[in-house]
Design a protein around this nucleic acid. Structure first.
Length: 404
RNA sequence: GGUGGGAUACUCAAGCGGCCAACGAGGGCAGACUGUAAAUCUGCUGACAAUUGUCUACACAGGUUCGAAUCCUGUUCCCACCA
């Protein structure tokens, strides 16, 4: 079945798919040669299970792996479980504590659950680098370090920068690219995927394979996607990300909050639209395009029904200033058992929608609170136990309902 | 191993004995304006408290003082330079 796909699609057609959205491809001719002789390519994507929450940044790379899957190639998702238990030192900002094997295992599990929202579960081969790294001796490791020089390491952009700025670089960090490269040797991969920041590391794999006499892997990097701020790359540490685990409402809202320019990038990298398709979209009203983007992406993760629902919700709340179709609700009796009335401030606090009481107070002071669509600034105004539902709103995002 | 420098709220970064819950910038939140945004302008941004009150905070532990983020002592961690 898979082989059939390969036969049906000729080399040039495949190369076109493979090259779509690629940032850099090192060894394109190697890919072409292997395809020409009918080889089923082995694709490697290494993932780091220290942070199990996937963002749309990961989606760009997963999309590419998915494309390879659809072409019928052999796709390996390599979980860096061994490396995670050592601790990833790359954090200039925060040092990540090494994880225990149990943590790694459970992280990997949640990671995979999310990854399969994009990947084809049936066609994904899962491997763990502890399979071989766990068996390596110190001597083996020393052998490996012979293939790399300090000067070459310092070619890597971020190392060079940090060295110049006197920011510390730990020796383990020098070891990481080697370890990653060794993974490629063990897997005998034909192509390694990664974000554009992984170029150097992935090239180390290519080099090691060559030294050992394997056919060197090609390296295909994908652009890093820009985050919600429209400036920095999407990353959890910048708090500018959209996560696979976000609620459908948050996902929709976050997408709507991106800048217009960012939207086209998302169309291209996340939905894989072609340039001509995007050019056509640009003729439409940007707001319409953005709503459509949000709806399509939310549908991708939550299904068409939810996508449609969130669109309606958004239009109601933001375009028509209405209340959303669904929101959290509390019954009066659970909040104020036996009480015939309550102060507005106490209602806000009891609803648990505010991180602190002060925050609730501030919302009132700033005039963002509405009760049944009517603005309220006095926290001490008394609300009687309602006969019918009342809707409380704070800002554009917080809504909740109290039923009597 | 030696010498110097540093540790302040989400981040960066002032403050160097009272006027400090702590300048300023970024971020976040809210309001105005808009096409959802972006940009712009304005306000808020430790907690608790029915206005000006209390508590907790400036690495940690003590001390000096009427009073300390600010001075002293010790501890921990970080950085640079020299070995």
């Amino acid at each position: 079945m898979e082989n059939l796909t390969i036969i049906l699609m000729n080399v040039q057609e495949q190369l076109k798919v493979i090259q779509q959205n690629a940032d850099k491809i090192i060894g394109l001719e190697d890919i072409e040669k292997r395809l020409a002789r009918g080889k089923r390519l082995r694709i490697k994507l290494g993932v780091d299970p220290t942070r199990p929450d996937l963002t749309f940044g990961h989606m760009v790379v997963f999309n590419k792996l998915r494309q390879f899957q659809d072409l019928g190639h052999e796709c390996i998702l390599l979980i860096g479980d061994y490396t995670a238990t050592i601790g990833d030192p790359s954090g200039r900002s925060d040092t990540r504590p090494p994880l225990t094997p149990e943590e790694v295992k459970s992280n990997a599990k949640t990671y995979l659950e999310q990854a399969f929202l994009i990947l084809d579960r049936e066609k994904t081969i899962i491997r763990y680098n502890s399979e071989w790294l766990g068996k390596m001796s110190f001597g083996d490791m020393l052998m490996l370090t012979r293939s790399m020089t300090v000067a070459r390491m310092l070619e890597r952009d971020d190392f060079a920068k940090r060295y110049a700025e006197n920011t510390p670089i730990s020796i383990v960090e020098f070891l990481y690219p080697l370890i990653q490269g060794y993974d490629s040797v063990m897997l005998e991969s034909d192509v390694e995927l990664g974000g554009s920041d992984q170029l150097f590391n992935n090239l180390v794999g290519r080099k090691l394979q060559e030294e050992i006499g394997q056919e060197p892997q090609a390296v295909l990097t994908l652009p890093l996607i820009v985050g919600l701020d429209g400036v920095k790359k999407m990353s959890k540490s910048y708090h500018n990300y959209i996560g696979f685990n976000d609620s459908s409402k948050d996902m929709f809202g976050k997408i709507m909050s991106i800048a217009d320019e960012t939207m086209w990038v998302y169309y291209k990298l996340l939905l894989l639209l072609s340039d001509s398709e995007i050019a056509a979209l640009k003729k439409e009203h940007p707001m319409q395009c953005k709503k459509d983007l949000a709806k399509r992406l939310v549908s991708r993760f939550f299904g068409d029904e939810v996508g449609k629902k969130e669109l309606e919700n958004f239009e109601a709340v933001f375009s028509r200033n209405e209340i959303p179709v669904d929101m959290p609700g509390f019954s009066w009796e659970t909040l104020f058992p036996g009480k015939p009335e309550a102060k507005l401030i106490d209602i806000l606090i009891a609803s648990n929608q505010f991180a602190t009481n002060s925050e609730a107070r501030r919302a009132l002071e700033q005039g963002s609170v509405k009760v049944n669509q009517i603005k309220e600034t006095d926290g001490f105004s008394v609300i009687p136990k309602p006969e019918r539902d009342i809707v409380v709103q704070a800002g554009k995002r917080k809504f909740f309902k109290i039923f009597g």
